[in-house]
Design a protein around this nucleic acid. Sequence first.
DNA 1: TTTATGCAAATGTTT
DNA 2: TAAACATTTGCATAA
Length: 501
Amino acid sequence: MSDVASCPEKICEGGEYYNEVIGTQDLCETPNQGNISPTTECTPSHFSSFCSSGFGDLDSTTTFANLPLTYAGNSYGAWSLSTDTNQTNFNNYGYCNYIQEIDNNTGVYQNYYTQGYHYNTPSINNYTDVPMTYVTETYEERSQTTTFQATTLESSQILENTCNQITEYHREDSQIEELSGYDQRYNTPQYHMLEKEDCNSKNFTTKEQYYDFNYSQEMMEVIEFFRFNKKSIFEKSIQGIDCNYDSNNDNSNDNIGNCVSVNDLVGDDQEDVGCPPLKVQKMDTEDKSMVEGATTTNLQIPFPQELTKKFQNEMIVESIEVFAASFKNQRISYGFTQGDVGRHIGLRFGNEFSQTTISRFEALNLSCKNMLKLKPKLEEWLISTHQLFQQGYTALEINENHLHNRFPKPSIAEQEAKQLAEIKKVKRQYITDSSRKRRKRTNLVPEQRNSLYKRYLQNNRPSEEALKEIADDIGLDVNVVKIWFCNRRQKDRKCVKKDDA
DNA sequence: TTTATGCAAATGTTT
DNA sequence: TAAACATTTGCATAA
């Protein structure tokens, strides 16, 4: 195992720039309990990698991994995975908000949530055969806040060491064994978007040293290796927990019961594929054997291309999950309700969302594509709100004075470009005019509904004239009546199909 | 008071 | 072009 804190990788993809980081413990170790040493040089404007200490709580053995894509100002969410160094067979998986003050180089963790799992052997490295028991039903809030002083590292040194680390991982069986554990040595890569200028920053020597997210087989091997290990642990712990995929839309071909296959979000252009679910399926035996192949010395082509796509999909899915959790945390800490957010977005973009939609976003109760579509707006909300608070406004003032109005509305093209960036890997993508106002939902009163249904029984496909007549008669817009008949026919067809099944 | 959810209105895509 | 088919979204209300 090398002495590397993190591995910055510049990822350039279609004009967008990512920073890829793999961390190990050594340069993250902290002499004092609770201290954390982020590597500020990894990303010029934000932290991207850090380790903290502790098991359960943030102490000397916790490794933080997989920073999400989401941030507002200096704020990040973070996942941690830590193991029990006292061999009491307890594993801990946590989430917290991470806020770094760039100027004075300090950071704060807050709103720390944890979920615990028992496993029945103290041997961490045998995890593949260890059944794990889900211990806590829900996240437990610890309300812990940890403040620390950041440590700055030389980026060139990090880059060099990290590349050595990757090479060693590829070469040495013993080191691979070590890495396959999921204790403090376990890390996952993470990435987030950077400005173009950052990519050319002097902190990084030459562009040629960067790994390309799409095309570097070597990089993908490492990413997949780490990610599989993590998944195999986590998935064991969520056995029996329902997927939280939009159960209303359960007629998709991708659905398997209430869960959906994650295959092919990053599909090739020939395939007409849908979105993955927001909770992933367990990996099957076949997949596992392929990944286990990666732990041999033959690491040239350990992963089939298909699997690479699958992991990319999972990364996308996970980035949404993490963002949703982070978004909720921040919304609550700002003191806004879901309804507030929906209204603010209306002020900001010209088209507001209901409390329902925000609620569903936070609970991952929307389709993946839908989540990806909404995400840029919620990111914008976080940024705008953060700025308003920085200017000294309170939540009350923001609400009463409609301060989200103050931000220039981005052009439709800009909004669409952002949505496109989110869902560009989804085939069948389409961006709708996001500024067009959705018609207010008509609330039909029972008499109107009865009247419509009576006429539907007489003729379920009325002509234009008949529709007009019905509309006049009931006192509704003819379009509303037309849509009602369409939806009613759709409902009937669905019922018939269901009966047939 | 806030959030979650069933049903279906409205919108988008394919046939 | 219209209808079928698919998906997004919000009202009303339960929790």
